[in-house]
């Protein structure tokens, strides 16, 4: 299985995402923001970073990149798309996911290992989790406050489309403690925390067992693999 990772001007975690794809057992394919070519990949990751310096709005300019028209077409065909952090912001700007992200309510950039609850374990990117499972992956952003109008929030909650929720103190003022959401079909998922940084022992969050041994993020990538194995 081939998973594309799009690099935009200002992407930071594209290489980490490629590495996570490899660790999960798939082949990473580097995709370029200025192309109209998805190289026939089976799934797509929009990585974290600060595309275009977060100028205008986080993810806004990148979401109008040439390749995003192809990403939007693919998403509408059912191709799995995962947006991480800046990638999540792009997905909301591209209207593939509802709501938006604003500056953290705490007024500072937040960087820490973050506990989450997997609320929806039936998306393309969360099938390897149990619903209600608690995981810990890094969170690092300045504009991670998830907001949506009351009707949208009600619909998301009612349809089980809140994919991840923050546990413990809300790190950024996100409404309903929402850390990530999915589209109706379950193939497009976006979240602010970074699963790709918790995929290899020695480089992940601390766990009770050992320092930096947390690999809770790996299941995002193995989940999408098993989606295709089952198909």
């Amino acid at each position: 299985m081939r998973i594309g990772v799009v690099t935009f001007p200002g992407s930071l975690d594209d290489r980490d995402a490629q590495r996570a794809v490899r660790l999960a057992g798939a082949d990473p394919v580097a995709l370029w923001h200025g192309d109209h070519d998805l190289h026939g990949v089976d799934a797509i990751v929009l990585p974290g970073g600060f595309s275009y310096g977060d100028y205008l709005r986080a993810g806004a300019i990148a979401s109008r990149s040439p390749i995003m028209t192809d990403v939007i077409d693919a998403a509408n065909r059912g191709v799995p798309v995962l947006g991480i952090c800046n990638g999540f912001q792009m997905l909301t700007e591209a209207h593939l996911l509802p709501g938006g992200l604003i500056r953290n309510a705490v007024g500072t950039f937040v960087c820490r290992d973050q506990r989450l609850r997997v609320e929806n374990a039936s998306t393309a990117w969360t099938g390897g989790f149990e619903a209600g499972q608690e995981i810990t992956i890094p969170l690092k952003n300045g504009e991670g406050g998830y907001i949506a109008d009351a009707d949208t929030l009600e619909r998301l909650e009612g349809e089980g489309r809140v994919a991840f929720r923050y546990l413990g103190a809300n790190p950024n003022g996100s409404l309903n403690d929402i850390a990530g959401v999915t589209n109706e079909r379950g193939n497009v998922v976006g979240l602010m925390p970074h699963p790709e940084h918790a995929t290899e022992p020695g480089f992940g969050p601390d766990t009770p067992d050992a320092m930096r041994s947390g690999i809770d993020g790996l299941a995002f990538f193995t989940s999408v693999l098993s989606t295709f194995a089952a198909a």
């Binding site: 205008l56 806004a60 509802p98 938006g100 907001i147 109008d149």
Partner: peptide, 8 residues
């Protein structure tokens, strides 16, 4: 369409 995001 571009200069603002009507969600926020």
């Amino acid at each position: 369409d571009l200069l603002s995001n009507s969600v926020i």
